[in-house]
Amino acid sequence: MRALPQLLLALLLTLVASPQGAVLLGQAIGETAAPFPAERLLSLALAHSGLALAGAGAASMLGIVLGIAVTRPVGRGLRPMVDAIAAISQAVPPVVVVALSVPAFGFGLWPTALALLLYGMMPVLRATTGALEAVSPDARAAAEAMGLPPRDVLLEVELPLAWPVMQDGLRVALVLSVATAAVGALAGASTLGTPIVLGLQNQNAVLIVQGAAATAALAFLAEALLLLGGSVARR
């Protein structure tokens, strides 16, 4: 089973994030502050997942559409520009994006969603263009010579052959998105970053450990689910 290590890590980190686990850990390092209650952690995890999914979904959609567009004959000229935009959006730290977009969007979900979109787009775009370019030129030439219209060449030959590699890009985008959504807490979005921010403000290491462990657990869980989904789809 390909996803077992990720699942085990997610379970271990969930134990660390739970109030009981965090208290035990806190006692070990001489920290006695009160832990974050389990039910609030759970509802933050749900909000966090929703935000991460929305960000990764939008990033994937945009990345795939752009990746397809720049590998078509008409869009080939845009390739350098799109690559540059994707590289820049990956290079700017999400914290900066969140901070800069607060004045534009105000506090709350939107600055974080924008950061996730920009941050997740590059892995998907890279994987899509790379995978489409790696499609056997012979198969593509044969499809064209037999009279498949360009749309069918894409849908029936190129995308099915590119899909396994594109999936890796989608997985990276989702895991990145789950991990970075925590930053959203700085702009007031309810995410698993919230306990971390609270912990930093109140110098409560137990809360920081809980938020960090829960975020990591969620990221591993997302990766495990995608791996499982991928191997089911392949069968």
Binding site: D138, A142, G147
Partner: peptide, 21 residues
């Protein structure tokens, strides 16, 4: 129409280009 024309003509080539999937 190029697609219609090509469908009406058989085409075989050295590299064959079978669809691997």
């Amino acid at each position: 129409d190029p697609a219609k024309l090509r469908q009406s003509i058989g085409y075989a080539m050295q590299s064959v280009g079978l669809f691997p999937h």
